[in-house]
Simulated scan of single mutants.
Amino acid sequence: MFRIDEQSMIRVAPFGMDLVLSIYYLAAPLLLIELKANPVELGLIGSITAAVHMMLAHRMGPLSDRLGRRRIILLSPALLIASCLLAAITGRVGVILLISGLNGFCLSLFWPAFQAWVADLQTESTNLARNIGTLNMAWTASHLIGPILSGFLFALHPRLPFLSAAGLSSILFLLSYGSIHDLSGGAKGKEPVGEPTWSPWEKKFLYAAWIANFMSWFILGNARYQFPKLARELGISPQIVGLLIGCLGLSLFLGFFVLRRSDLWHFRRRYLFGAQALGAAGLLTISLFSSPLLFALALTLIGLSASVTYYSSLLYAIRLSSQKGRGTGFHESILSLGALIGPILGGLGAHFSGLRMPYLVCFLFLLAAVGSETALLRRKDAD
């Protein structure tokens, strides 16, 4: 039987899940480009996935509170095997879009339940923060490797990335089956943490972090699903596109690595707003320049920005929720709403006003989001 210890599983399962998806979600737009899909259809790849995830994640989290984490987690890689194999044999745009819905269901099964399972392992907030950091570094490491691997596999044969993703999903299922088990009474038999105490400031900061993370995934959706079209139009090869998208994974990983080592940024406005300033700089760079090196810098800034907002949203949602599945479910649904709306609006902008327009749309929405966060947090004394 495939079996590893729980602490190792915190690293392996997120890495495996997002390695599968990062391979798939670079190969899918490239395949649709070969099938003559338009920018709106490219945007729908991510938007359909995000729509299903958004509608179901906040339900699957509480469901795992009631039924247990294990069975819900296991269903996700099992379904991913089927979706990747179907993508490997189809030649129709509509089928790829249908698979996007199935992948969204897989995400809604896996992430709220798995994040809550990680929270079940701990009772002290300091350990919780570090375990969340470990989980975050694991899934972002896959986004560093996955797009690069997918780009090179696609260059060999357009179906090879999907077959590889199916094989990896099979390994993930076997490891999860042997290693993930429901824990009764909190972490390893300890008494569960009582009802959390919310201060008004923490509550407002959680809402601000949710807004910021919504916006990060609004931007990431465009970077992942619209940027390949812009890059290919500029004559950039699939291999280089994979390397550029890999910059998102590298910067997310580095951001999580730094954040995991300190709690100084917890509930601090300067870090939340500073991170979003980096994202704004990245968007303007993509809007104005065409150099692959500047694209790499821009995507790195966007990834660093998202590392702060994602870590904040997930940590605060778990820390301030007595039912961990409910907290992780809301976190996942909110980020999926951003990933849903972003590629749709970006795709429409690209269709009617050119391939640079998605990043200007993101910039304007980011300004509005920062304004909302400022209104929420304006009454606290300066950090």
Results as ranks from 00 to 15, higher is better:
51 A>R: 04
214 F>M: 05
255 G>R: 12
161 P>F: 12
54 M>G: 01
353 S>H: 15
365 F>R: 02
213 N>S: 12
138 A>L: 07
272 L>R: 00
170 S>C: 06
119 A>K: 13
316 Y>Q: 12
90 T>R: 06
58 H>M: 11
209 A>Q: 04
166 A>Q: 06
1 M>F: 11
265 W>R: 04
240 I>V: 15
189 G>K: 04
251 S>N: 04
49 T>P: 00
90 T>P: 08
280 A>M: 15
261 R>E: 13
267 F>Q: 02
251 S>T: 00
352 F>N: 03
376 L>H: 01
369 A>I: 01
167 G>E: 05
140 T>K: 05
193 V>L: 14
354 G>N: 11
103 N>L: 14
59 R>T: 09
63 L>V: 02
50 A>L: 08
137 M>L: 05
101 G>P: 06
158 P>G: 07
301 L>E: 10
130 R>V: 06
382 A>I: 12
364 L>Q: 09
183 L>R: 13
96 I>C: 05
31 L>Q: 15
27 A>L: 07
88 A>F: 08
108 S>R: 09
133 G>H: 05
328 T>S: 15
48 I>H: 12
334 I>S: 01
62 P>R: 08
329 G>N: 11
287 S>F: 15
156 L>K: 05
7 Q>A: 14
202 E>R: 10
342 G>L: 04
124 E>I: 03
247 C>K: 02
201 W>C: 00
147 P>T: 06
101 G>T: 03
123 T>Q: 13
263 D>K: 14
164 S>V: 15
5 D>Q: 11
139 W>V: 04
328 T>Y: 07
42 L>E: 06
266 H>Q: 14
357 M>P: 02
192 P>G: 08
120 D>E: 14
26 L>A: 11
317 A>T: 04
71 R>F: 06
184 S>V: 09
371 G>M: 08
191 E>R: 05
375 A>L: 14
160 L>H: 03
143 H>M: 14
293 L>F: 15
187 A>G: 15
333 S>D: 03
234 L>W: 08
184 S>R: 13
358 P>R: 11
363 F>H: 06
300 T>G: 10
245 I>Q: 13
374 T>Y: 01
127 N>C: 02
233 E>M: 13
368 A>H: 02
235 G>K: 08
366 L>A: 07
